[in-house]
Design a protein around this nucleic acid. Structure first.
Lengths: 354, 354
DNA sequence: TTGAAAGCGCTAACAA
DNA sequence: TTGTTAGCGCTTTCAA
């Protein structure tokens, strides 16, 4: 079945010991002390016999698999996660790691199982973008313990874990400052509330920041700062009835500017608007909080407070690799969002100089 | 570092041999011959000590990793691949396998490297959706040889490999038959030509079927069968200039029905049409050849000749697992496409009874 | 009904 | 400058 040549066979044919072969082929520090002729001989023969080290055997002794796990709630459902995943595979690869994927449909039980499975495989580290931390934080800490470092994506302020997330505040303030400068005050937000806690009846009451999504938080803060009366629309992502209803609500009395929490939803609003004779951005403007590449190909190209997922991938993997080596000191990394100019917001409203 | 209890420790504490523990915990046939009390004792202790078998050690001796590799040209760029990937992870999991992902940006060199990497990791099997087979077929056969079975997605008729792809012919004929019955004869196709060979200048000449994409083939065949004069638009996916140009061409003189090779492109055409005052399906109809879930949420919901990627995932994984066990007899699996009713084609044109 | 012993392919002390 | 030896944690003959 496995007709690979082993290091022993290679050593035998080269007339040296397996150790020597190992040292040469792994470019260990000791390799320099070996005679050049030995090194050359081993290298040639390895090539000639098409020797490939057995990853499993190596991993067993070193306890390193050069593999990272990625647990994600959903990947096929929105371009945001797909693009993040793509970035992660690339970034991981550029650091010499492979990526093992677990998709969990935002199911917490699945997520715990996934974690357990990944740990039993002795992966070098794990990235998580999921709901798993909602309650299980301490259990997870205990599970992972010494085994595999963890980096959490999209959540911040978990005391015992490193995390990477975006600061929507920066992009949001930039947006508001420009809009207000141009006399725009009617700025609403439409958001998926699946993962959130029900909002108080009176939406105008500033709510406890920590409990809501980072997006809402940033919006609410910007509203306060710029004296805007907040206005909310919401829906449940999985329920197309609530989505349609939400869109209907929006179109009934569109705000000057609608902020949406995802590109996908923005696109749907824009398309629906077209059906009832409303044009974007002529009749109202739309700005999304994802900023996927995907919807920058949309028509009109979506204006967004962009989360550059490549930044998140890079930061997440780097932090994970740091943890793999140093094994201590968790860190909360906050990435900036930027205003990404598309054509779904009136151009003059976003000009820098008022 | 690794404070897991090993099978030896477990055996010691249970007062039995490692062999016994292994037999019990893996439910080997021999387990029935062990005394129930021994079995029970071992099981209890394993639970108590939170024993988890070391995947690596097991894999090394069995040479099975319970892991499949998926080499894919692109995953973040279109929902089609994202959804396929999601399905693959789920299907693999339901069969007890994990999925290792390699994304290659349709770069053949990368793809060969990916294959090599996966083979060196002793994965149990590999799925490929890529351009890698354009020339390298025999080399790949040699590389994989005994090591890991391969299933090719999206290409058919590779003599030495199992494959899974869709039969666009069935959906296409269904579409044409309905359209023609309703007197529609102006049916064009718009396709990405990145992966294809340049089409002959005179597009009306029936071209050698094998050389073009399955989609084109099906379209051309349906045109011949129903006496439709084919009409082609094309673009290169990576070049937004060609995409815009193509859309402009289409809108200049839209066909009654435009078939697009991807949902994404269909959406762009529809949006662009809106900008110049053309409505879909009122002014012209659009039907896509992907049929992703994603764009069934679009507005209007896309009508499509749908490739159900869950079918492809299921068939691909099942065939791969069959190969893993049986190690012989490759198979070309052809999956049906179905007409998926959205709202981007005039309703009356698609009614079954003419 | 159970255990001892060998070995998967590799690395890393320690010898020489 | 190179080789010997032991062992990672598990499975699997073979023996008792």
């Amino acid at each position: 079945m496995n007709n690979q040549v082993s290091i022993n066979e290679l050593a035998r044919q080269a007339g040296v010991s397996p150790t020597t072969v190992s040292i040469v082929l792994n470019d260990r520090p000791l390799a320099v002390r070996l005679s050049p002729s030995t090194r050359e001989k081993v290298r040639m023969l390895a090539k000639k016999l098409n020797y490939h080290p057995n990853h499993l055997a190596k991993a067993m002794v070193t306890q390193m698999t050069q593999t990272l796990g990625f647990i994600c709630g959903g990947i096929g459902s929105t371009p945001y996660y797909s693009e993040l995943m793509e970035s992660l595979t690339w970034t991981a690869e550029s650091h010499g790691y492979q990526l093992l994927l677990k998709e969990t449909r935002w199911d917490k039980k699945k997520e715990m199982e996934a974690l357990e499975m990944l740990l039993s495989r002795a992966l070098d580290g794990i990235l998580i973008f999921s709901r798993i931390f909602e309650n299980e934080s301490s259990r997870i800490l205990q599970m992972c313990g010494e085994h595999a470092p963890l980096v959490v994506l999209g959540i911040s302020d978990l005391p015992d874990f490193s995390s990477v997330c975006f600061d929507f505040g920066s992009g949001m303030r930039e947006l508001f400052s420009r809009l207000v400068r141009h006399g725009v005050h009617d700025i609403a937000i439409a958001d998926d509330r699946t993962l959130g806690i029900p909002r108080p009846q009176d939406a105008k009451t500033p709510f406890a920041l920590q409990q809501y999504t980072l997006k809402h938080t940033a919006y609410a803060a910007a509203c306060r700062q710029y004296g805007i009366t907040p206005r909310y629309f919401d829906f449940l992502f999985q329920s197309s009835a609530t989505v349609q209803d939400c869109i209907a609500q929006i179109l009934k009395e569109p705000p000057q500017v609608l902020i949406t929490s995802s590109d996908l939803f923005a696109a749907r609003v824009i398309s629906s608007a077209g059906r009832v004779g409303l044009r974007v951005p002529e009749d109202f403007s739309v700005i999304s909080l994802d900023g996927t590449q995907f919807f920058q190909l949309y028509n009109p190209p979506l204006t967004s407070i962009r989360q550059d997922v490549t930044l998140m991938a890079e930061a997440g993997i780097q932090e994970l690799i740091r943890l793999i080596h140093e094994r201590n000191g968790c860190q909360n990394i906050i990435l900036p969002t930027t205003l990404c100019m598309g054509e779904s917001v009136k151009k003059e409203w976003l000009q820098e100089s008022g």
